[in-house]
Design a binder for these strands. Structure first.
Length: 319
DNA sequence: AAATCGGGGGC
DNA sequence: GCCCCAGATTT
């Protein structure tokens, strides 16, 4: 199934044609190899279907921030069926938006997505902008998402650098096992230099590199023997050296954290389709009173929950 | 630059 | 049990 974006693979980068890319022959060959692989291997994800709207693409990108593809598909379909346009989401009750977000995690994304929808209605007449800087100015949209929406929803030429692309390019061109915790200017320049000149081809290149990172050039157990560009890979050529900055990575603790407690409170409120008393929420929090109350306060502060009634004794989803 | 912010699945 | 996942925002 030919995934979006890319009506037809642009062949302008084949030798001799006037055109789409002035890349040296080896880079042009790399482009063609990976683009062909993508055409043959890409997953049939719903937000890549020709019928997907720019709004659908934007929603997918927000949902996919730190959440794996397999967990997003279901919620994404339900979301777009319920709120097919930015105006629909902007008009929805925030409690319903948070409930529909379900267990995708980081529920502030749901809040910001609704704010984003409202901003699109206000500033752009309800139309998802194509300009990267206009996208960047919207709530919940950072550098990655702005580039991704410009490229995948509108076919613009943009440097899309997510964790997959950073890992693939780091291995391919610099021979590094894993990217650093923070994006560097060098990575941005390297990615920009490799980006095909033609807009439609560049958009397809971006998603192809991402797909390679998701399916083959994975963080854990890369399947180099299946990699279409293994012959050009600096990391493989160097014998797949281990990550140089492994000692700097430390995974955040989970048990007993405010994040866990906040998650339990949100889960309880999603399940209850109304308000719950403070006492019920403290029980749901599953921790000491002090931490439970602190978390309730922070959730109120974030606009994820709000007091109900005059007594301030119970809370519901939404501000 | 560092901290915070969910939740689940693979290994 | 550890690590990672189509990151963004705030301090």
């Amino acid at each position: 199934m030919p995934p979006r974006p890319a009506p037809a693979e642009t062949r302008a980068d084949t030798a001799g044609s006037a055109g789409a890319t002035d890349a040296p022959p080896d880079v042009a060959a790399l482009h063609r190899t990976l683009l062909d692989w993508y055409g043959a291997t890409a997953r049939d994800l719903p937000w890549r279907a020709p019928s997907a709207t720019p709004w659908g693409v934007l929603v997918s990108e927000i949902m996919l921030q730190q959440t794996p593809v397999v967990r997003v598909e279901g919620p994404w379909r339900a979301w777009l069926e319920r709120w097919p346009t930015p105006a629909d989401l902007a008009a929805a009750p925030t409690a319903e938006v948070l409930r529909a977000w379900g267990r995708l995690g980081y529920p502030r994304r749901a809040l910001r997505l609704q704010q984003c929808a409202a901003a699109i209605v206000d500033r752009h007449d309800g139309v998802v902008p194509a300009d990267e800087s206009a996208l960047l100015a919207l709530p919940g949209i950072g550098s990655y998402t702005a580039a991704a929406v410009a490229a995948f929803a509108h076919g613009r030429r943009a440097v899309v650098l997510d964790t997959n692309v950073r890992r693939v390019l780091g291995r391919l061109t610099r021979g590094e096992a894993l990217p650093r915790p923070h994006l560097t200017r060098g990575e941005n320049a390297a990615a920009a230099a490799l980006l095909p000149t033609d807009a439609a081809t560049s958009a397809r290149w971006n998603v192809a590199v991402m797909e390679l990172g998701a399916l083959v050039c994975t963080a854990r157990a890369p399947r180099c023997e299946e990699c279409p560009v293994r012959a050009s890979c600096a990391w493989l050529a160097a014998g797949r050296p281990a990550d140089e900055h492994a000692d700097r990575r430390r995974t955040q603790a989970w048990n007993g954290t405010d994040r866990q407690v906040r998650g339990r409170v949100m889960a309880a409120l999603r399940a209850a389709d109304g308000a719950l008393t403070r006492e019920e929420l403290v029980v749901a929090a599953g921790c000491g009173d002090e931490q439970a109350l602190r978390c309730l306060a922070s959730l109120v502060d974030d606009g994820l929950i709000g007091p109900v009634g005059e007594q301030d004794g119970s809370y519901a989803l939404g501000g």
